[in-house]
Design a protein around this nucleic acid. Structure first.
Lengths: 339, 339
DNA sequence: TTGTAGGCGTTATCAA
DNA sequence: TTGATAACGCCTACAA
């Protein structure tokens, strides 16, 4: 329980040499005699010396921290994306500083501020649902900090992005439903100011149009992302008397809610109604019937995002910005096997 | 894309005052004229001034960062625990620095080192499976850094801890199995040098003994925590011809593996064999039959851990160390309804 | 190969 | 109420 930590000066004093020599030895500088270096290192260890990273960073004008901002850490997609980032970043001796916004714009803004103030080397961000403007992100960009967005991105910003091809995924799964013979397919969507849900909606819409079917407003339900909302909407649909014959949901959770509700009411899945989700949440495989969905490669997305950021940091961020897209993989299960 | 950031000196120069005045104004020091303070704040905003947290921390000798070390961030329990910590820590203007060990001792050691070097204000840790020694943790404690352990703790260290009452949970669920009429109950365990799995084993053992049944070595299987291991072991048990009539697994995942395997082979659950897990993973509710398990209150554990740490940090860590225990809640589902 | 001196951006102390 | 000065711990020209 010592209080004042040993510094390079303490070591220097003990050995009757200068602090700079100690610094050089500890950092394996090129021209320094092996004997003094070894002596210094040995003494440093004896004195339980711990380099003060804060001081180093201040002096060098750069840190060893990468900031990550996500809506919620307890979501399967995000926690796995972060695991992917970790695996890339850990070997590189950066550290992750993780902030969670709870989908709130103000929290996101404050977190960005904190990261800037802590002089992080780069920032990875996936936007909060509450962030309808991007002034805070632009302000951060103006600081000249390398910044990469993933999953929930701002289309109009010209920066590196990594995301799912939500359009293609939605197109594929809708087409699958159509091929199975479903005709009256409705869509559970999220807030459509978020690229993710907008693109899924558009993929659905395009697939319907390509199959000669019109999508009307009454077929699309906004903000149906949770299990509970899925249940409620399913109940509403059933009560209304005009049950669709299939649902493509932007969320596995609301798909689950609907599935459980229909099951409990004796509506036959997939015969009377087909159900498809998005994200390949672990549970989708385990329900009866299993839920057709799309695999998102969260870990890969995390890895690529981290790699992109590290490139930016190391290359001085000059080049033109890149967007990487991962095409979700259609996972067909019993919930849509009409045929 | 400016390069050099504005400092308080720049502001001072612009206003022909001293840097210390600027500093005081920005920090709302008590004795300073309102007019200069307002002027300074206005100018700071104009010049897009961002306080350099690194410098502040160095000068003040303390930082605004809390380090968290966990085995894996993509596990339900841990990501939810972290969400809980975030909710407590965010309002307090600390920031979380999260490290994931992948269950590896060396990574854990290096992470601790990094946190110490970054002069974090406190550390929260849940040990890696690979950490059979605790020298690195003791070394960190010797630095005088407040440290709280959660879930995977080192029993012999006299520090604050927050954990599940694994013994009680295991005792409860085993007793439940016994009351249901199961007699030949085997146990899927994890590495028993980890308190978590040791305590679950002991709870199981005690419940069996209290019911007059002996637990022999052949009834306990070590290192069966994953779905795949659960499947493999289930297969082995079935082939051996002496199928137990119930399984209490330390992990929902291996319970799931066993359940799916038995189902696929036509072994009736819960009639021929009862299955119980631990952790109340989301999927346990959705299998057919649903899996009896124990709810862990991960978020609460995260919150309490964070609160305990903040107390330590703020109170100068003098008091005697506390251990908080959360009793897991038995969730009874169809997989054990023999009666 | 080593030492000296200065500064990274803040804040605390002392004096004015 | 404000200013000058030093120091937090480290690194790096430059000089020796």
């Amino acid at each position: 329980m010592e209080n004042r930590k040993t510094t390079i000066h303490d070591i220097a004093a003990r050995l009757n040499i200068s602090a700079s020599t100690v610094s050089r030895a500890l950092n394996d500088y090129y021209r320094i005699s092996k004997t003094t270096r070894d002596l210094i290192k040995k003494t440093a260890a004896e004195m339980n010396y711990k380099p003060n990273q804060l001081a180093t960073n201040l002096r060098k004008g750069r840190g060893n921290m990468i900031g990550v901002i996500i809506p919620r850490i307890d979501r399967h997609f995000f926690s796995h994306a972060i695991a992917g980032m970790e695996s890339v970043i850990n070997p590189s001796d950066f550290n992750l500083m993780i902030c969670q916004t709870n989908e709130d714009y103000m929290v996101e803004k404050r977190s960005l501020q904190a990261l800037v103030n802590n002089r992080v080397e780069g920032i990875i961000i996936s936007m909060a649902a509450g962030s309808t403007k991007t002034d805070h992100i632009e302000a951060t960009l103006n600081e000249g900090i390398p910044l990469v967005m993933f999953d929930r991105v701002a289309d109009h910003l010209d920066i590196d992005k990594v995301l799912n091809d939500n359009f293609a995924g939605a197109y594929d799964i809708t087409t699958h439903l159509i091929r199975q013979g479903y005709r009256n397919i409705v869509h559970f969507s999220g807030p459509r100011h978020i690229n993710v849900y907008r693109d899924r909606f558009e993929g659905y819409q395009k697939a319907m149009q390509d199959a000669g079917m019109e999508v009307t407003d009454s077929m699309v339900f906004e903000d149906i992302l949770t299990r509970q909302k899925g249940e409620e909407l399913a109940e509403q649909l059933l009560r209304s008397g005009k049950l669709p014959d299939a649902i493509f949901s932007s969320s596995d959770f609301s798909a689950l809610g609907a599935l459980l509700f229909f099951k409990s009411k004796g509506v036959a899945i997939p015969r009377q109604i087909g159900i498809a989700g998005f994200a390949n949440e672990p549970f989708t495989e385990l329900t009866t019937p299993g839920i057709t969905t799309l695999e998102q490669y969260s870990e890969e997305i995390g890895k690529s995002t981290a790699r992109l950021l590290i490139e930016r940091i190391e290359s001085g961020k000059k080049e033109v910005s890149k967007t990487m897209t991962f095409k979700p993989k259609l996972i067909i299960r019993a919930s849509t096997e009409k045929k």
